[in-house]
Simulated scan of single mutants.
Amino acid sequence: MTATESLPVTMGRRLYFQLGITLIVLAAAGWMLAAHRATLDNGTDRLAAADGEWLALACVAAVATWVCAAVAQQGAVIERLPRGRLVAAQFAAGAANHLLPAGAGATVVNLRFLTRCGLSTRRSATALAVKAAVGGIVRCALGVALLVASPGTVRLSARVPHALVLLPAAAAAVALVVAVSGRLRREVRRAFADVRDVHRSRARACALWGGSVAFALLHAAVVVAMVHAIGLGLPASRVVMAYLVASGAAALLPTPGGLGSLDAALALALTAAGAPGPAAVSTVLGYRLLTGWLPMAPGLLVLALLARRSAL
């Protein structure tokens, strides 16, 4: 079997693996919902009586996340992209991301959009990888900055310093694998060349990093607004930290749009931050409604429209 023939087999196995993980997570989430039905009902009732002004603010923050995603995507490439279609593509990618596991929906939509804009497949994939890497770095940096600015936000256990020792070891292992593989070395050199080209332009670098920071903070702002909407008096620093920790933990499970994994992680993080169970459930439901469920149908319509106009 040649490398070309084995590629569909490998992709098929990976898809089945991700699908299996998704089904396991969804089954576990369903079991948890059934076991805590009273808490879910209480949280739903509390959300129905939420403050309208805070809900409106949460809606504005949710809509702004798509604009920030478009700004970050523009910053990851040198070529100028059509602004209107770029924002529409991010909106459509958000809807597609809730249909396929591990962010594959958003990746496919953005990859197709960039190639339609004239970029090669390799450069398009590199731009998406750069954007994703910057997004991860930004979330970690925001978490560290929040801990420095508000030391009482999270009580670090004695095990945390020992766990941090694993980070350099993991980085060294990745560097060793890249050094041994000639193909990986070439790909990494090309990726770094693209990153250097992007950062030679101050405007592009500011768009990439600024858009990524704003994207993460606006998602956290949706959660903060939902917390205030239901009348929960949690400090904003704790809520932002809870979101950063939950979103990082949910990225480890390849479920569509973090379905089940992000919900459980965010509810647990809010509970650990001091929120009662029903209030945490209300916050998660509100966040999910504004960032995922309500935009789903219009996002799919935009996706179909972009495909019909050959923008994807």
Rank of each mutant, 00 (worst) to 15 (best):
L23A: 12
I24K: 01
V25D: 10
A27M: 13
R37M: 07
A38H: 13
N42Y: 08
G43N: 11
R46C: 04
L47T: 03
V67Y: 07
A69V: 04
A70E: 02
A72T: 11
Q73T: 12
A89D: 05
F91N: 04
P101M: 08
G103Y: 04
G105D: 06
G105C: 08
A106T: 11
N110D: 04
R116V: 05
R122D: 14
A125C: 13
K131A: 15
K131T: 12
V134T: 08
G135I: 01
V138P: 05
L146D: 03
V154M: 09
R155L: 14
L164N: 01
V165C: 11
L166V: 05
V177D: 13
R186E: 14
D194I: 06
R196Y: 09
S212E: 10
A214F: 03
M226P: 04
V227H: 07
L232G: 03
A236N: 13
S237Q: 15
M241D: 00
G248F: 06
A249K: 03
A250K: 00
L252P: 05
P254Y: 03
L259Q: 14
D263N: 13
T271A: 09
A275F: 00
V281F: 13
T283Q: 11
T291K: 02
T291N: 14
G299R: 08
L301Q: 07
L303G: 12
L303R: 07
A304M: 10
A307R: 05
A311N: 14
A311I: 10
